[in-house]
Design a protein around this nucleic acid. Sequence first.
DNA 1: AATCCACAGGAAGATTAGGATA
DNA 2: TATCCTAATCTTCCTGTGGATT
Length: 426
Amino acid sequence: MGPRRFFFTSMKKMVNSDIFGHLLKSNGLFINREAMRPTYMPDILPHREKEINNLAAVLVPALRYETPSNVFIYGKTGTGKTAVTKFVGKELLNKGKETSKKVNFIYINCEIVDTQYRLLQNIANHFIDTWSERIPFTGWPTDEVFAKLKQMIEKEGGVIVIILDEVDKLKGDEALYNLSRINTDLKNVRVSIVGLSNDLKFTEFLDPRVKSSLGEENMIFPPYNAGELQDILNQRVGIALKMDSIDEDVVPLCSALAAQEHGDARRALDLLRMSAELAERSKSLRITKKHVRLAQSKIEIDRIVEVVRTLPAQSKLILLAILLQEKYNKKTGTAGAITTGEVYEIYKELCKKTRTDFLTQRRVADLISELDMLGIITARVISKGRYGRTRDIKTSSSDDLIDILQEDDVFKGLVNYKIRGQTRLM
DNA sequence: AATCCACAGGAAGATTAGGATA
DNA sequence: TATCCTAATCTTCCTGTGGATT
């Protein structure tokens, strides 16, 4: 053991290994980095007092062992649905403990837990330490899990509030139907459900029985306006950052930019956090508008890179065709304006090279407009008079997307693919 | 004013994939 | 495990059209 230990300690001295220590010491701008993460739960949620009170009013019967109404809450992303419900839930639990009432509060994100089986399993496993053995990931018939769940919560007693975040992601409405009727089979315990959704039309094509029983109360969270976003950001700045580490026009800028994007508080926070991190990395003493601009473009680029990376193969081939044509045009000095037809021809060539079978032009046209909607390219319809009507296709990001496509093994050989010198009118 | 290119983009049917059900 | 259902994907066939050219 001795020599080995010596080896390592001496290594440490030899190599310039204290990279983190160096970064740790360089006094950054943060006091509490966590406070800028979207998961952070502040003690006060600005501009949501009304929503908090409304929800609390609906749930308060739980503390008297009465069944609270089921609630549906709508609101776009970043309007504080999750934060408000979690906040109220926490308070409810506290009050329950204080008054020694049996109140349970379960939060489930249906985007992750998206089938009836896993939903029931998830709820049931909340009570494992109070009673019984765990329900396995798979194997049991669904109705048996349901029966077991009822048995378990009956034993638990009291009132159980279940939060279903992103309910619209839940597959099939059977789960909701069963849950909404669960109270009829229970004596000792009351269950109430709070569903969160960012899709206003969600209930429209829901089983009417579920709709009426779950939508006893409805709440709508409006988007934040720029001023409200400023208050939220300022609150976080106070917790997260050192004094005097931020220009006073930074928060208004972040708020304004996020307000344009439907008042999404998460966006605003991400933008601010990224600005702060960029400022810190560039060893600036204060966060300035410059950093916000940088952060904004970085977020945008990150988004595009992520989207491109997860694109289906066919779309990738189409995108590559566009990129190659663009490169070719740049080299030959041909002016922009790539048409659908041109893209399709190259796309077909690429498919032959990769031994992929190609889609029809009709379909490719749809995929092109899909790429347009994702913001990777811009494709607007133009008329070239006698020479027809087509789309004018350009990549919208100046960044080199070819590198990202190259990660895909299939594309390795294609990136240097030469477009045949085609003589084309105009 | 008439023509006509090179597609856009709608409708409907076929095919496929993934999940539910027996 | 087989098969059945549904939603997404893709094809086929189609009609429509802005504006340079004739």
